[in-house]
Design a protein around this nucleic acid. Structure first.
Lengths: 235, 235
DNA sequence: ATTGGGTAGTGTTTAGCTTACACTATGAAT
DNA sequence: ATTCATAGTGTAAGCTAAACACTACCCAAT
């Protein structure tokens, strides 16, 4: 039922950049595109916005299709709308990025989409303008993580300070003095120390911490500063 | 020519939140909607994305239609896509915000759209979800201006430090000590002092400055800090 | 039982930056 | 000459960020 009669309609898609952290490096989840054009090439997970759903709902649906996860961190990144970005038919695409706990990802869903995790430094050639989307997402996650505590979304509920530091070092491709890092992190009041230790990383074991959710929500918008000399980083 | 045959197409629009600064308060430019639905009600300037243009091009076109301006600061804000945001037919809208020198705005174009500048604190009721768009733009301009020198885009090429301070105070709804403010601003190396004075604001006159464009582009991405205690601001 | 190896955990000093704060300069109008 | 309104400038104190090194713990190997 077209009521703004003279206007052109077009396809609207959603594409998701899904970040995960395996303890070593920051990775994104890619699939092999299942239909033409560019069938079989590496691609972001995406899909068309359906008539009955909002764009946000579409993004959540697509994220769940691939990962089985709901209620995770998902934020709209940017809308890409060059006329020829899809060679078959004009399609605008709203890119979202998600931060998930990589261990909650259900590997069995892999098979359907031939999904694989790729370290940010070794992203293969992607279909259409998905490279630009990934670039934008990398910039955004760095930018936002330099100011707000979003990286916790990539960790399990219980994590150690050395794990957290490795995550920050990996995202910002830098090294941080561990004394200063733990001082800053603890000074935020965002962490609750547990009595249990993680024995996997060392003989001695490192204490587990969990987020103080109250403080987390309260301070989320305040500017934090876990990263030394943020001005010198190329965000 | 529909080639992804089973998918639904929809309308894609662009809406612009246009900011200007009159020396007193931050304002946005609104028009009276010229067609149904909600004809005659206050609205952002917008239009449909055409088949031959990218979304960015559509935004620039729409900005030019209303203001006569090209090449000004224009940034994509967010895409709004609730299913019922336009009661007539499903339409997603990509919101952009623009920062213009209010004096360059060509008033004669007013008549066609019945445009008017409204101070941020006195925005009338707007059509559809345009209120949300304006809210988002307010948050974004504050956020970005707290970190990057975008507010210069609202000033003429020649401006005085008191004018600049008034602008910052108006955007952040705060007061800043003028000694500290001028120290910080000058310390960035972004400003070139001219020998000419602005006599309009006072008998004594205030020196004009202009941007050092080289430093401006070089330092645009670095985090600045013109705002005292940004953590306490509710961005 | 002792030693060695690897990671966890902590404190202090220094430098730089941020903040708070008040007086003089200028030019026009009376 | 005085008044008035805005422009312009410096310093001291407190705080935060940065640099930096040693001890604690646990296990495994001898």
């Amino acid at each position: 039922m077209h009521k703004y009669s003279k206007q052109t309609r077009l396809l609207l898609a959603v594409d998701c950049i899904i970040f995960g952290f395996d303890g070593e490096t920051l990775k994104i989840l890619l699939i092999q595109r299942g239909f033409q054009p560019e069938k079989g090439n590496w691609s972001l997970m995406g899909g068309f916005v359906q008539p009955t759903e909002s764009i946000d709902q579409a993004a959540n649906r697509i994220l769940k299709q691939l990962t089985g996860l709901e209620g995770v961190y998902l934020e709209q990144l940017h809308t890409f709308g060059d006329t020829n970005r899809d060679p078959i038919e004009r399609t605008a695409s709203v890119a979202y990025f998600a931060l998930i706990d990589i261990h909650k990802y259900e590997t069995q869903l892999n098979t359907e989409y031939h999904a694989e995790w790729f370290p940010l430094k070794r992203i293969p050639k992607l279909v259409f303008d998905h490279q630009d989307m990934v670039e934008g997402a990398k910039r955004r996650i760095r930018y936002k993580a330099a100011l707000h505590p979003i990286l916790f979304e990539l960790l399990p509920t219980k994590f150690t300070i050395p794990q957290l530091q490795t995550l920050y070092e990996s995202v910002f491709n830098t090294t941080i003095d561990k004394r200063n890092f733990s001082k800053r992190v603890l000074a935020t009041g965002l962490l609750i120390k547990l009595s249990e230790k993680d024995k996997a990383g060392s003989k001695r074991g490192a204490y587990y911490y969990q987020l103080n959710m109250q403080n987390y929500y309260a301070k989320f918008q305040a500017f934090l500063n876990f990263i030394p000399n943020p001005d010198t980083l190329h965000l």
